[in-house]
Amino acid sequence: MMDVLVNGHKAYCYTGGKAFDAAKPSVVFIHGVLNDHSVWILQSRWFAHHGWNVLALDLPGHCRSEGPPPASVEEAAQFVLALLDAAGIEKAALVGHSFGSLIALEAAARAPQRITRLALVGTAYPMKVSPALLEGALNDPQRAIDMVNSFSHSMLAPPPSTLGPGTWLYGGSRALMRRVLASNRETNVFHLGFKACNDYAGGEAAMSAVQCPVLFVLGKSDQMTPPRATQALRAKAQGARVMQVAAGHALMSEAPDEVLFALRDFLSEAR
C-alpha cells in the first residue's frame, strides 16, 4: 500500500502486496459508488505478482483517501490524472467498474497519449440512476443500499475463487457499502456518486477522443448496467472488444476468474 499526495491531500492506493515501481507497466483500478480499492482484491494482487505496477485507489473522501469527494465524473477523472503525475507514472492502463468506468473513460479522453489500455467493467452510457435510488441514497441510504445489493447480484453464493467458502455476497457487499458511507461524515458519497453517474453527458464525445484499445467486460444478468446500455459507447470505440460473463453488476465477486482472465489477456498486449 502507499499514500500519494494529490492536490494537497493524501490519496490511498493498494499496490497488491508488492512495492511500487514506476518503471514497470502500470495499471490503475478505479472503484464504483460506495466501494473502495478492496473490490479489486483478486485482480490487483494477480497483476502485482505478475510484473505490473498496481494502484488500486480509494477515491478522494472515501475510506483511506482524504480530500473532498468528486462531485462529477470530470472532477474524478482529473484526480486520476493528477494521481499519475504525483506517482511519477507517465503511461498507464485504466480499469474501472461502474462509476469508475466512466471516470476511466473520461480520463482516457483527457490524456489519450498517457493511457495504454482502457477496460470498462459493468459500464453503461448514459448511466442513468432511477429516481427511487437517487432519492433513497439521499434520504434513506440504508434502504437504498439494500436495493442496490438486490439489483447488483445474480447469485447467493460466490465461486470458490472469490473469497473462499462461506462468503456471503449480499452481506459482504452491504457491509462494505455501509463502511464506505460511514467513512465520510461530512458528505453523503452515496448520493454524490449516483448523481455524478446520472449527470454525466460526455460519454460519446469522450469515447471518440480515446486512442487506445478498449475492452468492455459486462455481466449477462446485470440489472444496474445491462449490456445493451453500452451500444452508444461501443459504436464510438475503435476496435472495441466485448466479454460477457455469467454475473450481475458485481462482476468481480460473481465472476472473479472470468474478469481476471479477460483483463489479463487484454492488458498483456500493452506490455
Rank of each mutant, 00 (worst) to 15 (best):
A182S: 13
D199Q: 10
A137P: 05
D265H: 10
G67V: 00
S253C: 11
A71Q: 09
G239M: 10
R45T: 15
L215G: 03
M224D: 11
A157L: 13
C13F: 10
K220I: 14
R185Q: 12
L81E: 06
A82H: 11
A48Q: 01
A132C: 10
V210L: 04
A157D: 12
Q142K: 11
N7R: 13
A182F: 08
D58R: 08
H153C: 12
L215R: 05
G203Y: 01
L156N: 12
G219K: 03
D146P: 04
R45C: 13
G122Y: 01
P60Q: 02
Q238G: 15
D199I: 07
V80Q: 04
M147L: 13
H37G: 06
S72M: 00
N198C: 04
A77Q: 01
E75F: 01
A232D: 04
H249N: 05
F216P: 01
V180R: 07
W40Q: 01
G67E: 00
V39D: 08
E254C: 07
F216I: 07
N139D: 13
R264S: 12
L163D: 13
V242I: 14
V214E: 00
Q43D: 08
E269C: 10
F29A: 01
V80W: 05
A196R: 00
D36Q: 12
S253N: 14
M252W: 05
A235D: 01
L163V: 11
F194I: 04
G51L: 03
F190Q: 07
A48S: 06
V259G: 07
F194T: 12
Y125P: 02
K128Y: 06
I103A: 02
P25L: 08
H49S: 13
F151I: 12
A201S: 10
P256N: 03
A205N: 11
N198D: 15
I145H: 02
R45H: 14
F79V: 08
R228G: 13
G248Y: 07
P68N: 13
H249I: 01
C197N: 10
A71G: 15
A92E: 07
W52F: 09
A109D: 00
S173L: 09
A119K: 05
G136V: 10
G67L: 00
R45M: 12
A92N: 07
N7H: 11
E254Y: 09
